[in-house]
C-alpha cells in the first residue's frame, strides 16, 4: 500500500513538473477576418490587433466568463445569446447584476469589423472600447477594469492563455479588450439566403414574395438600411413616442447637441427575424408591429427625420398589407443559420 502511494505521488509530481516546464509562448497563428464581396470594407484596423487563434480563443473565453461581472454570474453572453444573433432573447431591456435593469435593448453582435461606431447612441467610437461600457455599468456587469484584471490574474487558464495570445503576455486591460475584439471581429454573418442570392452562389433564388419585398424594401427602407450591412450607420429620430419612464434622449446624451435629440443608430437588419423585440427600448415584439408603426404610428416629437415626412405633412412610410407581408418575407431571407449555429462561437 505504501509503495503504491509513493509511486502515485511520484507520478503526480512528475506530471506537475512536466506541465510547468512547457513554455506557453506567443505563437501567432493568424485567423482571417472575412471580407465578403458584398460587404463594405473592413474599418477595424487589424494591423494594431492581429487576430490569432489563441487571441480568438481567449476572447471567446472572456465573452462567456462571469468573472467579468461583479457577482460572477453575468458574462457578456448573458445578454448576447448566439441563437438570437447575440441578443437577449425576448427581453425588451436587460437585467444585470443585483437585479439592475438597463434602459436599452441589447443589440446583436455581428459584422462589427465593418462598422466604426457602436451602441444605440454611438457612445463607443472604437470596438476595443465598447466592452468597457457594459462592464462598468452599475445596471449591467457592475465591475471595474482593474478588478476584473485582478480576478483574471489569479486564474491559471488566463495566466497561460494571455501568454499564448499576446507577445508581451501581460494580463492587462489592453490585452483583455483586444482579445474581446478578436472574438467579436470574427462574428461575421454573411451567408444568409439573401447573401447567396446576391452573390449568385449555389443557384439560390428568392421566391416571388421575397423578391416583391426586396423591391419595396429598396424603394422605401434602403435609404437608411443601406448597403449589405443594412444600415447607413447614421443616427436618426424615427418618430417613436417618448417613453416617459425612460425618457431616453438617445445620441443627445453624448454631445448634448439639440439636433441629436431622440436619435439612435440605424440598426442592421441581419438576422432581424431572430433579434426581437425591436427598437432601442424593445417596445415592438414582432416585425408586423414595426411595419405597422412605420405605416401609422409615428409621432412628431419635434426632431423626426425629414426623410420620413409624407406629402400630407404626417410622418411615416405608407405601406399596404401586401407590402408589409412581402417586406417581412424578404427580411427573413437575412437569417443566417450558419452564423446562428456556428460552433466556433458557441460556449460548448
Amino acid at each position: 500500500m505504501k509503495k503504491i502511494f509513493l509511486l502515485a505521488s511520484a507520478l503526480m509530481f512528475w506530471l506537475g513538473c512536466a506541465k510547468s516546464e512547457i513554455q506557453e509562448n506567443y505563437v501567432p497563428i493568424p485567423l482571417e477576418v472575412e471580407q465578403p464581396s458584398n460587404f463594405p470594407d473592413i474599418v477595424y484596423n487589424l494591423d494594431n490587433n492581429l487576430v490569432t487563434e489563441a487571441g480568438f480563443e481567449l476572447g471567446k473565453r472572456l465573452f462567456y466568463d462571469g468573472k467579468l461581472s461583479a457577482n460572477g454570474a453575468i458574462p457578456c453572453a448573458f445578454c448576447h445569446e448566439q441563437a438570437f444573433a447575440f441578443t437577449h432573447h425576448g427581453h425588451t431591456v436587460s437585467h444585470g447584476v443585483n437585479g439592475g435593469i438597463g434602459t436599452r435593448n441589447a443589440q446583436p453582435l455581428q459584422n462589427l469589423a465593418y462598422q466604426s461606431e457602436f451602441m444605440w447612441d454611438g457612445a463607443a467610437s472604437h470596438l476595443d472600447f465598447q466592452p468597457i461600457i457594459p462592464l462598468t455599468s452599475e445596471l449591467e456587469m457592475g465591475e471595474t477594469l482593474t478588478n476584473v484584471i485582478d480576478k483574471l490574474s489569479l486564474d491559471i487558464y488566463y495566466q497561460e492563455q494571455f501568454k499564448k495570445a499576446f507577445e508581451d503576455g501581460e494580463i492587462n486591460s489592453e490585452n483583455m479588450l483586444k482579445a474581446l475584439s478578436q472574438f467579436m471581429l470574427m462574428l461575421v454573418s454573411s451567408n444568409s439566403k439573401y447573401d447567396k442570392y446576391v452573390r449568385e452562389e449555389d443557384n439560390v433564388m428568392l421566391t416571388q414574395i421575397e423578391l416583391d419585398g426586396f423591391e419595396t424594401f429598396q424603394n422605401k427602407c434602403a435609404s437608411c438600411h443601406a448597403t449589405d450591412l443594412f444600415t447607413d450607420q447614421s443616427y436618426r429620430n424615427n418618430g417613436l413616442s417618448i417613453n416617459p419612464k425612460l425618457n431616453d434622449e438617445g445620441r443627445y446624451s453624448i454631445f448634448e447637441n439639440p439636433n441629436d435629440k431622440y436619435k439612435f443608430k440605424v440598426p442592421s437588419l441581419r438576422n432581424v427575424e431572430k433579434s426581437f423585440p425591436y427598437m432601442h427600448d424593445g417596445r415592438f415584439a414582432t416585425l408586423e408591429a414595426v411595419l405597422n408603426f412605420y405605416d401609422s404610428g409615428l409621432v412628431n416629437n419635434g426632431n423626426v427625420d425629414p426623410t420620413l415626412l409624407r406629402n400630407d405633412n404626417t410622418y411615416g412610410i405608407t405601406l399596404n398589407e401586401y407590402e408589409k407581408e412581402s417586406i417581412i418575407a424578404f427580411l427573413k431571407t437575412l437569417t443566417d443559420n450558419e452564423f446562428l449555429t456556428d460552433e466556433r462561437f458557441s460556449e460548448y
Partner: peptide, 15 residues
C-alpha cells in the same frame, strides 16, 4: 402590461 405585440407606454397611441 402590453398592447398586442407592443410594450405598453404611457402617452403612446394604440389602435
Amino acid at each position: 402590461n402590453g398592447v398586442d405585440d407592443q410594450d405598453f407606454i404611457f402617452g403612446t397611441s394604440y389602435n
